[in-house]
Write a protein that binds this DNA or RNA. Structure first.
Lengths: 334, 334
DNA sequence: AGCGCAATTGTATGCGCTTTCACGACGGTG
DNA sequence: CACCGTCGTGAAAGCGCATACAATTGCGCT
């Protein structure tokens, strides 16, 4: 490092250099690189030695131009600032990596128009498969996906009759055990503090599910509101909820529930004696806060999405749907 | 969709097709695509019409093979299951996207050997810049980075005299205000529940900082232990901490502090009357839990890392260091 | 000795794009 | 009116790799 020159030579060592050094053709180098069996082991080791000596690194871009496969998966998620999505991405990345694939990720901020732009970029990057969240999409996005033939799956959702390959769970049905549980514990004045439902089919399905199962018990929500995903905003919405005099507040997800919990504590309202509170996601914190919630198989979704996408690409078929289950986790807040 | 055939035709429309349709050469199409000014506006719109009609999407891989730029940044982080890293990635992705760059991300699970493998993959993918966390690395990784000349920055750390471009904060110095605060509030029996320090220069620097500033007050830790990043494990470690009869427990990060808080609550120990508890990161939850902690500029780090990397690539120079500040956030647990 | 075949290796082409260079048209100038 | 510079465009050469196909070799057999 005492040399004055910055050694910014972008690895000028190509397959040709390796070939020359090993006294073979580039075809043979390529064969060694790709584990072809038709290379004499003596030649193979000669090539491997040359590779090591030169510190040769194959150029993935050139490789994928030639093979028409990028060994890369794409994922577009609403946000990473939600632990449940982060967990999904974490698992998807791990699985993709295990299978020798990279992951390019983009965040849509819950905006379908933005998502459409990102889908286009994924198309240009020629990812081998794309994982999306939910099924609320612009027509343009749908067209893009259909006409390009890009293999893709929709996570966090499951629709028996949907057109896409869904890898997730039924958000509507997931609410049934929760409602049943609240009924069984004598709650009758149920209020809902939902997540934003615009452009969010999962949130909408949950709301619909809650109303549906409640009506089966001859009940309706005593109050309902939406808030953006944020502890603070949920906290601020608490007085509104209280105005309906509920004996239970169902929250669209755990983070919203945390906000409600903190607000209730500050307001001197006892949970669960005065009001029951429930969440959705079962984040790690929820155990500590003793929050009744619904556990979501985020890691499993991520793993399976990656796996299915890679498998489908290898077998040159369309990815298939896979349904997962959520489970009610009863804790102290209900 | 009534057609029996799956229309898996991977966009067979190339620049050549657009060129033919518009009655120009591929060179001109390329110029239009890249916003060259030397194209007559009449021709330009003809080309644009052809692009739209054919639904042409440029092949990013081929483009980067020709330009030797991938318009892609890489990031290798220890985990995504830590909200503070997720926030950093989120911001980095947003900034990269704003600048027209993609992001390929990999998770090392705090393993330097794994990280080395990932660095090699990033090298093969020829990312324009790479964001890493911290500076604990294998010699091989260091060699790889040096000899390849890949532009990279180390986030979450800052060392005046370090060899890498650091974009972060001084983990050692960050502890000074915290220790001072505990001193000012009369705490003398300080215990430490640190994160794992192996392969983690940030965690080590924090521990060292705590010991250093404590010794300036003529004190030493009454007890010290490490735990992996997990609420539950931190909870389980609480009795060990208690055995030292501390009047304050400094935790390596907020998540560990949450575990301590929950454990204290279960043990009937009052915070802060019996014991003060502090964290590190200032996650969104910490406000609700009223946790005294140290705020880390995760989003700013992400943004600046992306920005610096892209800027450096454009200007063909080495990325530069940038120091950020942490701030003590005094709340109810101390 | 001559033939056929399998095992290896090399040659050459192309993946889809950018970019250098050459070329033609055109307007202004001396 | 010849000349020159500028602008707009096309032809063609790669970027670094994989791979179809050709070529070579060695071997067993007849």
């Amino acid at each position: 490092m005492t040399s004055g020159k910055p050694d910014f030579i972008t690895s000028p060592v190509r397959q040709t250099d390796v070939a020359r050094k090993a006294g073979v053709s580039t075809a043979t180098v390529s064969r060694v690189l790709n584990g072809s069996t038709l290379v004499r082991s003596e030649v193979r080791s000669r090539v491997e030695a040359a590779i090591a000596e030169l510190g040769y690194l194959p150029h993935e871009g050139a490789r994928s131009l030639a093979t028409r496969r990028t060994r890369t998966l794409g994922m577009i998620i609403p946000t990473l600032n939600n632990a449940i999505f982060a967990a999904g991405v974490n698992a998807l990345e791990a699985e993709a990596r295990d299978q020798g694939h990279g992951l390019v990720i983009s965040v849509s901020n819950y905006d379908p128009v933005q998502e459409t732009v990102l889908i286009r970029q994924m198309l240009e990057r020629k990812v081998d498969g794309l994982a999306l969240v939910g099924n609320d999409r612009t027509d343009e996005a749908r067209d893009l996906l259909r006409s390009s033939g890009l293999r893709h799956v929709a996570a966090w959702t499951f629709d028996q009759h949907g057109a896409t390959a869904d890898i997730g769970f039924d958000n509507h049905a997931a609410m049934e055990p929760l409602v049943a549980h609240l009924m069984a514990t004598g709650r009758r004045r149920i209020a809902l503090l939902a997540g934003v439902t615009a452009d969010n089919d999962r949130a909408r399905a949950r709301v619909k599910g809650i109303r549906h199962y409640l009506s089966e018990h001859g009940l309706a929500l005593v109050g309902s509101r939406e808030v953006r995903y944020s502890i603070r905003l949920a906290q601020a919405a608490f007085p509104d909820m209280l105005a309906h005099r509920p004996d239970a507040i169902i929250c669209g997800n755990d983070v919203i529930a945390y906000g409600v919990l903190f607000a209730a504590q500050q307001a001197g309202i006892d949970v669960p004696d005065d009001i029951a509170v429930t969440g959705f996601d079962d984040l790690p914190m929820s155990e500590g806060l003793n929050l009744t919630t619904i556990a979501v198989p985020a890691a499993e979704m991520g793993r399976r999405a990656a796996n299915e996408l890679i498998r489908a690409a290898e077998e040159e078929r369309a990815p298939e749907s896979y349904e997962m289950q959520t489970t009610l986790v009863r804790r102290g807040t209900s």
